[in-house]
Amino acid sequence: MKIVVNYDLCESNAICMAVAPEVFEVRDDDFLYLLTEEPGEELREKMEESVRRCPKQAITIEG
């Protein structure tokens, strides 16, 4: 599973960080960083949750 963020859409509101801090991190510079682009399968449910909750529809899961 690969996580792709469309940074043109993302506005760093950190909703995804609240859902999965092990994958998404909004840092002091107010940009979103992916801590891993290929999270393990055990995180699939959380990744789907992040996709659903992202207000900008900026996250997609590939594979």
């Binding site: 506005e11 760093s12 509101n13 950190a14 909703i15 960080m17 609240a18 909004v26 840092r27 002091d28 107010d30």
Partner: peptide, 12 residues
């Protein structure tokens, strides 16, 4: 206002 990270940290 233009401080998204802090809002979410407090929310958590």
């Amino acid at each position: 206002v233009n401080r998204p990270r802090h809002v979410m940290q407090v929310r958590m």
